[in-house]
Design a protein around this nucleic acid. Sequence first.
DNA 1: AAATTACTATACCACTCGGTATAGTCGATG
DNA 2: CATCGACTATACCGAGTGGTATAGTAATTT
Lengths: 188, 188
Amino acid sequence: MDNRSNILSCALRLFATRGYDAVGVQEIVEAAGITKPTLYHYFGSKQGLLDALLKESFAPLYREVKSASVYRSDLPLTLHQMAKAHFDFANRNKMFYRLQLALWFAPPESDAFKAVSRLNHELYQLTEEVFMRAAVDHGNMKGRHRAYAATFVGMINNYIALSLNGYARLDDQLLYQAVHQFMHGIFS
Amino acid sequence: MDNRSNILSCALRLFATRGYDAVGVQEIVEAAGITKPTLYHYFGSKQGLLDALLKESFAPLYREVKSASVYRSDLPLTLHQMAKAHFDFANRNKMFYRLQLALWFAPPESDAFKAVSRLNHELYQLTEEVFMRAAVDHGNMKGRHRAYAATFVGMINNYIALSLNGYARLDDQLLYQAVHQFMHGIFS
DNA sequence: AAATTACTATACCACTCGGTATAGTCGATG
DNA sequence: CATCGACTATACCGAGTGGTATAGTAATTT
């Protein structure tokens, strides 16, 4: 593996397990077996490293969720596909999803939060658009697409957070249960 | 206000807006208008300051949620009360709830996460116990109390996070809507 | 009055932080 | 062979980190 990829992978692991602010540049380069100038050659700064890390890791997640978010008048199906895209990605990229969740809830003035907020918003938009289109078919949902999108994304991230801490397994059964509960509640 | 309380309040504000690791002790004492030995006299270390801050802020939240979690064979009522306890507390202690959410999703090896995980678990237990008792009355819920508790708490925190970022207002209408959706889904 | 306790400021510690100036090394290109 | 650009190591920078030794002040207790 080339140095650049190696730095990214070590930084991801350290940031995800200990936090962006708590990990120093020195620690990253030691983990990667290189020295500081090499890191600064590729990324310019610690912040630049985080930006590159987030941007390149977000790209496949966004792509997969986007292709899962086609809506053809079958809301349960679309929600199922979108949740599955999230679950599959989280299963494959546990470290990155850990980091992503931590940054999403990070203090609003922190560098880390600023770096991730725009990317996260683009992802959220995909969900909101689905509920907007669904409101055409389901009259009683009109005007509540933002609330639904926020709840749905929150629920997905909640399940992923549970699985990352060992309280659940992101399998098809949980996927079905989650989407079903979202649509029909716990009394059914 | 005495020095101790003043330090706690300044530290809370700084930790919540910029993050525990990003805020130095020097910055805290300057904000509080005192010097370092004073802080170290009361709290022993930066970590000790965080511990005291969390412990003392968690106490009223736990107390209020606990008294709201009495279950008398009316699950909707109990869930309503518990969600209201969370919402009310979050409205009154926005800064602390910000910090609390950030730490809940913080990297698992970070000092901050370790400091909050036990307290958070105690709080979560209250919810789980409600669903365990409810399962006696609602047979179809048996064996799923953990999933329900996790989802319910996750939903509440999701709504509070939204309100902290200006995307919602934690009023009675949202409260009713949230609990209703949890129980009956979006198709009703 | 003397001693004790609780608290706070000055000044400092060793260490780490993010970042860089300099001097290379190396393979590709002319 | 000469050169050029991409990349990497040594050694260092000023600033800031969490934490403390010392000395004091002010109120309380004996």
